[in-house]
Nucleic acid binder design. Structure first.
Length: 565
RNA sequence: GCGCGAGUAGCUCAGCUGGAUAGAGCGUCGGCCUCCGGAGCCGAAGGUCGUGGGUUCGAAUCCCGCCUCGCGCACCA
């Protein structure tokens, strides 16, 4: 039990003793001002109404009955409108360090998830080009959220949904066709909605060298068809190109993800929803449910019955389905595969789809909960280099890829920068800052704190494994800098639990930066090696505990914790 | 026009799901230091939390209106 858990238990007992309901759950918080003690509770204020007594009076009654020794409290104080402040007895906080050493890499883990299966879907890029910075933010977010949920006791499946069917893929295949035709000397332009990127030209070259040059008559006919807005007549050749392009770009994206250190458990192909009949099946079910209607030659779903702001087309006039249908079919599989929670990490530019996917799932009436799936939406990323924004132009096909960033600043920095802001705010990625080897760079600063702590053991030729908490004089950790550091370290589990609950990894990033700051402060002010034995031992425990917490937090974010830099 | 998000110190951002005198880094100003590991340490100035109402013991946080910016509003994903 950590000191605050002990105190909470004692408060609960006393509250019930003075007449509070058995369900009472005292909330302890860290006072902003350290002068107010180690912990504070507003319990007396929340009990004022149910007990019909004044807050300060209740506070006094509570304090009078409190078993200070059992709760590890040295002093209490009633303040303001009815806060009770607690100062733990000397060393009570520090004793919590033993807990950190005992739990090691599992310090900060909880079991609120109770092994429930959660599906976290992220990146899910169309295989129509390399991963760009937006995907990078998503990869970092999705992976960190997954790690947070695992730490909270959920069984997490990381899933990538490939939109390898539909109009975008059609455009991709046409773009490749055009580049191949151009290589054969045919004059034709990339069609409206096509892909202009240089990578398509490279793809065309690879296609030619691997598959050989197609007959130019077929290429010309196809190019004319594309220019006229339709598909090439040579369906077999067109299909070959489509497959080639999708396979090649998927392989590229896999390399990007590997470079970023992100691994998925499941790659789900949109095309499989068509081949195994789930799309048709979904449409049938929706029709039977009576929520569809036909208008202007299209088949619609009345999503407005389920909270969407307008009805949606399911089957277009040309007989093909909109992306929305496979999307719904796909999410049904998540539910059917047993995921009681499904979390989708997406760019905020997709927020329009959330209401209709949920509406579609409700319309199916197969027992999917209303808020399913959950969405974590993130705002845009802008890249700044040399103090200027790097312009991203989709039309010209020029943008900053994830791989560019990783090559330039390293995986750890990319991860941290994508995670240091909350998803709701727009993110500025300062390339120069990310690559700088100075303490202004937050990643460097945090990793440096870990390396410094490691350095103490290395320089002192002490094996950290031999450092144990037994017999340590806890009140030897009496300096302000170390008392504050100890408090921060013990706060870690609460912090992580909150971050997991809110699906907000940036809290961990901010915590690590603050804790690293305290480590540096302590390190500069106080020596470890060469101190008297009892201080040396206590500080080695602190150093080991701090190193552990930094390492645990960095691991959640997918960032290395180096021993030396 | 409608929906979602943002607006907090000169700049970049936190603010633990409603708590006490709103915090950190950078920058500015003043003073030290050169020490296990590389400009570090101490202090200061700097705020009508976009704005106007409301809810209550108590609001940056919750509700309503307005302003500014971003994103979306396809039979594209």
């Amino acid at each position: 039990m950590t000191p605050d858990e002990l105190l909470r238990a004692e408060l609960t007992r006393v509250a019930i003793a003075i007449g509070a309901p058995d369900s009472v759950a005292p909330v302890l918080e860290r006072p902003r001002d350290p002068a107010h003690g180690d912990w504070a509770t507003n319990l007396a204020m929340t009990l004022a109404k149910p007990l019909g007594r004044k807050p300060r009076e209740i506070a006094e009654a509570l304090v009078a009955k409190l078993d200070l020794a059992a709760a590890g409290v040295a002093a209490t104080e009633i303040a303001g409108p009815g806060f009770i402040n607690f100062r733990l007895d000397s060393g009570a906080n520090a004793r919590g360090l033993a807990n950190i050493l005992a739990l090691g890499a599992t310090f900060g883990r909880t079991d609120v998830g109770k092994g429930a299966p959660v599906n976290v879907e992220f990146v899910s890029a169309n295989p129509t080009g390399p991963l760009h910075v937006g995907h990078g933010r998503q990869a970092a977010l999705g992976d960190a959220i997954s790690a947070l949920l695992e730490g909270a006791g959920y069984r997490v499946t990381r899933e990538f949904y490939y939109n390898d069917a539909g109009v975008q893929i059609e455009n991709l295949a046409k773009s490749l066709w055009v580049r191949v035709a151009q290589a054969a000397g045919i004059e034709v332009q990339i069609p409206e909605g096509g892909y202009n990127g240089e990578y398509i030209r490279e793809l065309a070259e690879r296609f030619l060298s691997e598959s050989g040059a197609p007959p130019s008559s077929a290429l010309l006919a196809g190019a004319e068809a594309i220019a006229a807005g339709s598909a090439p007549a040579d369906a077999a050749l067109f299909d070959t190109m489509r497959r080639f392009a999708v396979a090649a770009l998927r392989a590229e994206q896999d390399l990007d993800l590997r470079a970023f250190g992100v691994a998925f458990n499941v790659y789900y192909l949109e095309s499989s929803l068509y081949t195994d009949g789930r799309v048709e099946e979904t449409v049938d079910m929706l029709r039977k449910g009576g929520h569809t209607f036909e208008e202007e030659g299209a088949l619609w779903l009345r999503t407005t019955d389920f909270g969407d702001d307008k009805d949606r087309v399911m089957r277009k006039r040309d007989g093909t389905f909109t992306y929305f249908v496979p999307d719904v079919a796909y999410h049904v599989t998540k539910w059917q595969r047993g995921f009681t929670r499904a979390i989708n990490v997406q760019g905020a530019d997709h927020h329009g789809t959330t209401a209709r996917v949920r509406a579609g799932l409700q319309a199916l009436e197969v027992g999917v909960p209303k808020g399913y799936p959950e969405y974590v939406l993130h705002q845009m990323v802008t890249v700044v280099r040399g103090g200027e924004e790097v312009k991203i132009s989709k039309r010209a096909g020029s943008y900053v890829t994830v791989r560019d960033l990783i090559d330039e600043v390293g995986r750890d920095a990319v991860r941290y920068f994508f995670l240091m802001r909350k998803g709701d705010s727009q993110l500025v990625f300062d390339v120069d800052l990310a690559r700088s080897q100075s303490e202004e760079n937050p990643v460097y600063y945090i990793q440096m704190a870990h390396a410094r702590l490691s350095g103490i053991f290395r320089v002192g030729e002490i094996d950290p494994a031999t450092i144990i908490a037994d017999g340590v004089q806890w009140d030897a950790l009496a300096e302000d800098a170390e008392r504050e550091l100890v408090k921060s370290l013990l706060d870690y589990p609460r912090l992580v639990a909150g971050a997991a609950d809110a699906l907000e990894p940036h809290r961990v990033a901010a915590y690590l930066l603050e804790t690293a700051r305290q480590v540096h402060l302590w390190y500069h002010k106080h020596h470890v090696l060469g101190e008297p034995e009892h201080i040396l031992r206590a500080r080695l425990v602190l150093a080991k505990a701090a190193r552990q917490v930094l390492a645990n937090g960095l691991a959640l974010l997918g960032i290395n914790a180096p021993e030396r830099m």
